[in-house]
Amino acid sequence: VFVDDHLLEKVLELNAKGEKRLIKTWSRRSTIVPEMVGHTIAVYNGKQHVPVYITENMVGHKLGEFAP
């Protein structure tokens, strides 16, 4: 499973602090992992960042699938 390192670091850091804030990313190719559930990730679609709230059903899919 591929997840960009910088994105995973941000998610794990927020989980350690117990925070839930918006994470901006250009990494549409990253796979959604269970650690991301409950976070809102702003995924770049080529024009703007689209906020995507991550749920359990999204695990295993790519971030780009949810930012048309």
Rank of each mutant, 00 (worst) to 15 (best):
R21G: 12
V33C: 11
L63V: 04
T55R: 12
A16V: 07
V43T: 07
M36L: 06
E56P: 12
G38K: 05
L7D: 01
V37E: 09
S30Y: 02
P68I: 13
S30F: 02
I41F: 06
L12I: 12
L7A: 01
K62C: 14
W26P: 10
Y53T: 09
H6I: 15
I41D: 00
E19T: 09
Q48N: 12
A16T: 10
V43C: 07
V50S: 09
A67F: 05
V1A: 15
S27A: 05
V33I: 15
N45W: 09
P51Y: 06
L7M: 03
G64V: 06
D4F: 01
G18S: 09
N15I: 07
M36R: 00
H61S: 12
P34A: 11
N15D: 03
M58N: 06
K24L: 11
F2L: 12
K47N: 10
E9K: 14
V33G: 03
L22W: 09
R29H: 14
N45C: 11
A16H: 08
F2E: 11
W26A: 11
K24F: 15
R28N: 04
K10T: 15
T25K: 02
A42H: 06
I32F: 01
H6Y: 15
A67M: 05
E56R: 13
M36T: 01
T25D: 02
E65C: 14
R29C: 15
E56W: 12
G64E: 08
T40W: 10
L63H: 00
E9R: 12
K62P: 11
W26K: 15
V33N: 04
F66C: 05
G64M: 09
R21N: 11
P34F: 12
V11D: 01
E65D: 06
G60S: 10
T40R: 08
Y53C: 14
R29S: 07
R29F: 14
Q48S: 13
I32G: 00
L22G: 04
M36S: 00
V1I: 14
K20H: 09
V52Y: 03
N45P: 02
T31D: 08
T40L: 13
I23P: 01
K10N: 13
T55S: 12
K62L: 12
V59K: 07
R29K: 14
E35N: 07
G64C: 14
T40M: 10
V1N: 15
E56N: 13
K47G: 10
L22S: 07
V50R: 07
I23V: 08
M36D: 00
L7F: 01
P51C: 10
M58L: 13
N45K: 08
R29E: 13
R21V: 12
G46Y: 12
V37L: 13
S30G: 02
E13A: 12
Y53R: 11
T31I: 08
H49N: 05
V11A: 01
R29T: 11
Y44V: 05
V33E: 02
L22V: 13
I32P: 00
H61E: 10
E35P: 14
G46H: 15
E9L: 13
E13N: 08
V37G: 03
H39I: 03
E56D: 11
H6L: 15
Y53N: 13
P68Q: 07
G18M: 08
P51V: 10
V1G: 15
V33L: 13
G46V: 04
A42K: 05
T25I: 02
G18H: 07
P51R: 13
E65R: 12
L22R: 07
A42Y: 04
T40K: 09
K62G: 05
E19R: 07
G46C: 15
F2A: 07
E9T: 15
H6Q: 15
P68T: 11
T40F: 06
G18L: 04
Y44D: 05
E19D: 09
L7T: 02
T40Y: 07
E56C: 13
D5C: 15
V1Y: 04
V1R: 07
V37I: 14
I41P: 00
L12M: 13
V11W: 01
K10F: 08
G38C: 06
K20Y: 07
E19A: 09
W26R: 10
M58F: 06
I32N: 00
R21C: 15
K47D: 09
A67N: 04
G38Y: 08
E65Y: 12
L7H: 01
P51F: 05
L14R: 02
G38D: 14
T31Y: 14
L7K: 00
T31E: 07
T31F: 10
V59D: 02
R28T: 08
V1P: 15
V50M: 13
V33D: 02
G38H: 12
N15W: 02
H6T: 14
H6S: 13
V59P: 06
G60K: 06
V59Q: 11
G18D: 07
G60M: 15
H49Q: 05
N45L: 07
V37Y: 09
D5S: 15
H6V: 15
